[in-house]
Nucleic acid binder design. Structure first.
Lengths: 213, 213
DNA sequence: GCTCTTAACTTACACCGTATATTTACAACG
DNA sequence: CGTTGTAAATATACGGTGTAAGTTAAGAGC
């Protein structure tokens, strides 16, 4: 009766199947019964690995967040690290637009947040400014991703200009839109940094020191 | 059987009751039956004024958006107009945090978008830069509002510092957090503006001209 | 009076999340 | 080998959901 080659259920397998299902059929298509069927199992079996649907949704967010890549210290400067991290974030959103909507109501992973925070600290920002910067960058990125997913208002989608451009060019254009705001924030941060660096150097912290904590 | 002083049902009345219900009991507490009961009516009666629940949610967003106030041209400069508009946006989110979560998946009202867009145009921005600016500002604001509602990561909420501050001071602090990123973007925009203004003045457009379109 | 229109109510259906109880599958041990 | 303990699957059931379809009631215009 049971299929032979069926891998056993596991939290991980459930989460991945859920992400795939939502990618395919949207958030509204996700139900415990439907997901169970997808895995060849009754709905209630899922509860052996996940306490309830809310936790399932949270786990799906986790899975996506794991995919965010933050460039290492070997990269050019902190600007490039930050840019890379948030671009990666946006790309996750683009790869899983339906799942990403869950990010609107669920907090970022503390782990990723900490890593980015450390980059900002490493750039010479004091704790409070680094928090401010983190808030600004992550707010912008999540807001942008959500807006892109649902479509920006005022954007004349069917305009003649759009039709002339080849798909690859449109991709570039799409990235440029995001970078516009991202660079506005990053270069604003750099200015603050330079200004305070020139003023007093009140915190002893070299521009790339291996200082932790 | 029917109560005497009962006003007749209407789309508007339904939407306002829905907002109030969600404010009170959260998004999960909103169902057609529950909302009907709130209005002293059966669930199916609502369908005479609203095609389905999705449209109901959309209508609730509309109601909130109507509350956004954009300072008129009489205000100081375009910076203050923009700042005021997006602060107003954030305040709506704070007044109706549960309902605001719907903004994550539903587009801004085209009307409000247009008015803000015109402010940016009036500031001397060409069409494309104004679109970029609008995207950056609205993405940041919505992202920030959502993040504030769910709580920022890394924020040591129970820290000793927080406890020492009086509630009014915390309010100020809360606004300062939002303004930090908002000002980063606005001052970045101003720089771009000044730079291009000094460079070629390629578009004949005085800094405060009554130019429309 | 009568009809026409509108908006209310009633019923019914398929589906939802999940509490609870039961059965199955398998590993460890004698 | 059989036994037993345990984890994970299934089965059933309950109260809720959105809404399609059918019915009733109240008022407007003739």
């Amino acid at each position: 009766m049971g299929e032979v080659g069926r891998r056993p259920l596991s939290r991980r397998r459930i989460l991945e199947a859920a992400v795939e299902l939502v990618d395919r059929e949207g958030l509204r298509g996700l139900s415990m019964r439907r997901l169970g069927r997808e895995l060849g199992v009754e709905a209630m079996s899922l509860y052996n690995h996940v306490p309830n649907k809310e936790a399932l949704l949270g786990g799906m967010v986790e899975v996506l967040i794991e995919g965010v890549e933050i460039p290492g210290e070997s990269s050019a400067g902190w600007e490039e690290q930050v840019r890379g991290a948030f671009r990666s974030y946006l790309n996750i959103a683009r790869a899983h637009p339906e799942v990403f909507q869950l990010f609107a109501t669920r907090p970022l992973g503390t782990g990723e947040a900490l890593r980015i925070f450390e980059v900002l600290r490493g750039a010479g920002l004091d704790v409070v400014p680094a928090l401010h910067a983190f808030r600004a960058l992550s707010s912008y990125t999540i807001g942008y991703a959500l807006a892109e997913i649902r479509g920006f208002p005022l954007e004349l989608e069917g305009g003649p200009r759009a039709l002339e451009l080849a798909p690859p060019l449109k991709e570039v254009d799409r990235d440029a839109k995001f970078d516009y705001g991202l660079d506005l924030i990053i270069s604003g941060l750099r200015q603050k940094l330079d200004r305070q660096g020139a003023k007093g150097d009140s915190q002893r912290r070299s521009k790339r020191g291996p200082d932790h904590r």
